[in-house]
Each structure stands twice: as structure tokens, then as C-alpha cells.
Simulated assay, not measured.
Amino acid sequence: MVARQSSSRKRRKSHPRVVVIGGGTGLSTLLRGVKTYTPDITAVVTVADDGGSSGRLRKEMGILPPGDIRNCIVALAEEESLMSSLFQYRFQQGEGLKGHSIGNLLIAALTDISGDFLTAIRQASKILKIKGRVYPSTTEKVVLLAELDNNTIVEGQSRIMRSEHPIKRVFLRPGEVSPVPEAVQALMEADQIIIGPGSLFTSIIPNLLIPDIAEAIGASRAQKIYVCNVMTQPGETNGYRAEDHLSKLLEHCPGLTLDIVMVNNSPIPRRLREAYALEGAVAVDFDSSRLEEMGVEVILKDVVNFSNFVRHDPLKLARVLKRLTEPERSAPCPSLGK
């Protein structure tokens, strides 16, 4: 049980305490921006991944999947130097090596040497001299499952992402999972909690299915922000609007409270819309009035970078998020459940 934070808690005046929650490339993109306005960062990362290099290490060595953890460590590095590039280097050939990144193998080796995944993360973080801290949401070996709209159950994050039927809900096995205590403590002490962006069902919600994590967010006096995805994700959020993303978050986590939903309002260039449409993805649309009726403040901003892909821009995100920590915005907005 998480105790509600005392209203007398003193906030740091020098810089805000920020906790980000999620996984995948969305979380590492966000971290690259957040580290520009505060060094006091905690990343709480999903460990439900079972695909690629992480999945192989998980199966062969019995460790937690290191991939999303590795990406966060690199994103929080003081500077993305040669050592950072080395962490991200992925072998293109070699029996047993092809597909593995050096960072994943290093975290696996540090886990084997120390006998502890959290110790391995701390040691890898020291190597890159990161700003902040990175924690898995749990150190238990969880499996993500999904119930589809045809009532079938799909097991495993990588299979869920390829679902041909809409996802009704996701859940963890085992159902009762303990969080990493340091992650809960960081949430309770935070000034700003940011959820997303990232794959809704396979990167974000798995963290919030851990009861003490969701409860700590609800009890925290932090400003709570959901950064909505820019594009829908085939197999997960086909046809989803921003309101649908928020609705699914609340459906899976009834005690969750949010203050702000940030949605991109910059038009997607035609060439990119057409390229994404070939893969079944479209820009996430929104109805501000409906979102406000759900009890959140809606912030519409251009927070996207356009290249060959549509991605959140770390610096654009950081500018908006930093302004939300300024004194006139320090008090929580009217939020769900308050």
C-alpha cells in the first residue's frame, strides 16, 4: 500500500524531479529532451519485451530483457559519444552474435557477474556517466498477455504487436507483481510524471499494471502528463484517436489520475502520410472537447520531427514540458479522480 504524499513536502527549487514511464524508442526519445532541462530524472521501464536480442537473452540466460533499459541508458548519457555508439552497435553477422547489440550483451554479462539485474544497470549507467537513474518497473519475470476482441488470448509482447484483431485488454502473468521500490519512491517524490509516448499496450500499460506503480502515481502530488503518440500503430491502435488512448489507459488502471494530455497538432506532410498509409498507420486525430470532458487539460503543440519517419522531437517536447514546470504551472491542474 502506497501512502499519499504529504502536502508539506518541499519541492526542489533548482530543478524539477521528473519521472518518465514507458519503453521502446518513444521513452528514449523523451529522455533525450528531458535531460536538457533537469538532471534529476528517473526512467521507469517495462520488462515485458520478448522479441529480438532481448528476447533471446531472456530465454537463453534467464535474465530480464535489457533492450529498452539499454536505450534509456544511452539516451541519458552525458554525451552520445563513441561509447554510446558502441552500446548501440548491433552485430550484423556471426553465429550466435547476429542481431545482438553490445549494450545488451554487456548488461547480460554484468548481471551474470554481479548476480543482480539492478546492480548491472547501475554499473552500465556509470560507464556512460548518465544523468539520472534507470529502473525496471519490476524485477520479476513477467509475461504480457492480451485478450482480443474475438476472445482469444495471445501470449507474448512480440506476438501481441502482430495481432490481427483489436486488443480488448492486456494483463500480466503472474498477476501479483512487486515493483522496484526505488521506482515507487521516485514517483512519490516527483514534481512531474510523464507517461509515454510509446506503444500503448506493449510499452506503456505493462508498467501501470503493477498495482503499486499505478497507486504511487495516484498518490503523488506531481504534475501528471500523458504524451500521446503521433501515429497509430498497426496491430495495437488501429484507428485510435487521442481519446481512445486515454480511455484505454484509464480502463486498465482505474485509480490512475492525469492532469494533462499533450497531443501533436502539426500537420503530417503528404509524402509521409502516404508512406505510413501503406503500412496501415495514420496520424492520431483528437477532439479537444471530448478530452476535456474526461477531466484533463489538453495541450496542442507542434512536437514532431519529420525526416523519413514521423517521430516526436526531443527538443520540441522538452520546451513544452519545461514550461509546465515553471512556477505559475507548478500546482497540479484539475485532474481525473481529484
Rank of each mutant, 00 (worst) to 15 (best):
P136T: 09
N207F: 10
V230A: 03
R290N: 04
S81K: 09
H312L: 04
A146M: 08
V230F: 06
D112F: 07
S114F: 09
V303T: 03
K141E: 07
C333P: 13
R122D: 11
T257W: 12
K338E: 04
G51D: 11
A124T: 14
P166L: 01
I210A: 00
A331N: 13
S289V: 15
A3F: 12
H312Q: 07
S266Q: 14
G239Y: 06
R11N: 06
A275Q: 13
S6Y: 05
L86R: 01
M294K: 13
P254R: 02
M83K: 11
I21S: 08
F87K: 03
V304I: 14
N71P: 14
E155H: 07
L97A: 00
D287Q: 12
I69D: 00
V177S: 02
F91G: 03
G198H: 13
I121D: 02
K301R: 04
A214I: 08
L82V: 14
V282K: 07
L208W: 05
A242F: 08
L57K: 03
K224N: 09
E147A: 04
C72E: 05
I121R: 07
A214F: 04
K338F: 11
E292N: 10
V44Q: 02
V303N: 00
E292M: 13
R4H: 03
V304P: 07
D50K: 13
T42F: 00
A75K: 12
T232V: 07
G115E: 10
V154F: 00
P16Y: 06
E236M: 07
G218K: 10
K131G: 10
I260G: 00
S101H: 12
G94F: 13
L30K: 03
T119G: 06
M1C: 09
M188C: 10
Y37L: 09
A109N: 02
M83E: 06
D68G: 05
L30Y: 04
A277R: 10
P166I: 14
C333R: 11
G33L: 05
Q5Y: 05
E215Q: 09
G23K: 06
V230G: 01
C228L: 01
D49K: 05
R32C: 04
I63A: 01
S53H: 12
K322G: 08
T29N: 11
G235Y: 09
R58Y: 04
S199G: 07
P174I: 14
R133L: 05
D68T: 15
V74H: 02
E189D: 12
N264G: 02
R329A: 10
R4C: 08
P269N: 08
S163I: 14
Q5V: 15
L105W: 10
K126N: 06
E251A: 09
A318C: 09
L249H: 01
V44C: 03
E251S: 02
S28R: 06
S14W: 06
P269E: 05
T38S: 02
P39M: 00
A120K: 14
T46A: 00
G115W: 12
T42E: 02
G280T: 15
M83W: 09
L144W: 03
I41V: 15
R4M: 08
T257S: 12
R319G: 08
E297W: 10
